[in-house]
Design a protein around this nucleic acid. Structure first.
Lengths: 215, 215
DNA sequence: ACGGAAAGCGGACCTGAGTCCACTTCTTCT
DNA sequence: AGAAGAAGTGGACTCAGGTCCGCTTTCCGT
């Protein structure tokens, strides 16, 4: 019932190549674009002021002087809105590990990059934890959120480059699981693990992952 | 706001030792007990008939001929009800790995038990996936659900027994993450991984976890 | 038995997410 | 410029989860 909602226009990629490709995303109408930024700005402001948990969809629509229907058409649901908000925060972080300078970006040895990736990710998560928890994708979406898929892929690629053997995709999935925002949050606040220990744990896992198959 | 709900009487353990201990859980009143089983039975029946996703709290209360307030007082929220329902299904599985015969239960070598544990867990999850997905604890509760904590602990204990070195608790946490119901479901349905591959992946992870620290 | 206190009950009520659809606004084609 | 229709809009509405609080039941001490 709630499982399969329509989910309209998943991030209609405002900048498409001008080549006359068959027919990609038919471009967004100007008023729609205007409302998107209004909504995003309003939502960002409200989240900053009251914390992501305490922002209702009605409040966002009102603050943006836009109808509720529009809000939902744009972002699908509450989670979608939070995810869109996160995308902004993720961009810099993603650029960092995809294209940035070593040791995080290309140029360094794969193992170094993996280490740096874990460290950067944990740091990034903690900085945006409020949003991550509010945007937390329950069950079905947890492993299909683009940002998450990107992380798993990145880890898998680096593992391969580092010469890892075994079922690298599954190992990558397990490693990515360690970087789940909710887990990091739990370890920090409920279990009292220090940031350093969590990052050291990542390093240990990476080393185990790239080691030759034991036994 | 939603974060810290009162959460009344977490499983008030109906059978307490008759010793005059200081003063544990003050026992449940008879009408309360009666209503709890009514609710659980009604909920179980509805879930069986319509799938966990399509069962509303009102429907459960009605079917049990009990007020909605009672339902919520007992189980806190929807997730709590689903968790309670799961507890029943988990019991046999938990007994299996805690007290059952080898290789799952005590008696076998720790490494064997770890392997068997992964296999049994994946199988168990797939059998009850409907409920697991409905009971899916979002963010804050995901890592504090008793059954989950038990799994992590069990893994950590066996890792220790197997002579694992390093930050065993964190490694155990990562391994447990691999057994997240939503992940197993995702791997099976979205990614098309076979049950066998997922279980083999577990075996690989376990072997890596108990290997001596690389590098 | 009986009476008082505490635990439990139930359903009206509130809130916020998500839907629907008649209406408006953009875009494009001529 | 104007018409046609696709895309977008907004807010009333529905629905389900969760709360509240006056009433009832059970329990226990006397």
């Amino acid at each position: 019932m709630t499982a399969q909602r329509p989910r309209p226009a998943e991030t209609p990629s405002p900048s498409r190549a001008e080549l006359p490709v068959v027919d990609q995303a038919p471009r967004e109408r100007s008023d729609a674009a205007r409302n998107r930024v209004r909504l995003l700005e309003a939502a960002g402001e409200l989240v900053r002021r009251h914390g992501a948990q305490n922002v209702t969809m009605d409040a966002v629509a009102d603050a943006a002087s836009v109808g509720k229907g529009t809000l939902f058409r744009r972002f699908g649901d509450r989670e979608g809105l939070m995810l869109a908000l996160l995308e902004h925060a993720e961009e810099e972080y993603q650029r960092g590990y995809l294209f940035g300078p070593p040791p995080l970006g290309p140029g360094a040895a794969p193992l170094e990059r993996l280490d740096a990736f874990g460290e950067a990710t944990v740091r990034h998560l903690l900085c945006n934890m409020d949003l991550y928890l509010a945007a937390d994708a329950c069950a079905s979406r947890r492993y299909t959120v683009p940002a998450g898929v990107l992380r798993v892929t990145h880890i898998a690629v680096l593992l391969h480059q580092a010469g890892a053997v075994g079922d690298v995709d599954l190992v990558a999935q397990a490693l990515a699981g360690y970087l789940d925002p909710a887990l990091v949050h739990h370890l920090c606040t409920q279990r009292g693990f220090s940031l350093e220990r969590i990052q050291a744990g990542w390093r240990e896992l990476v080393n185990r992952a790239v080691a030759p198959l034991p036994a």
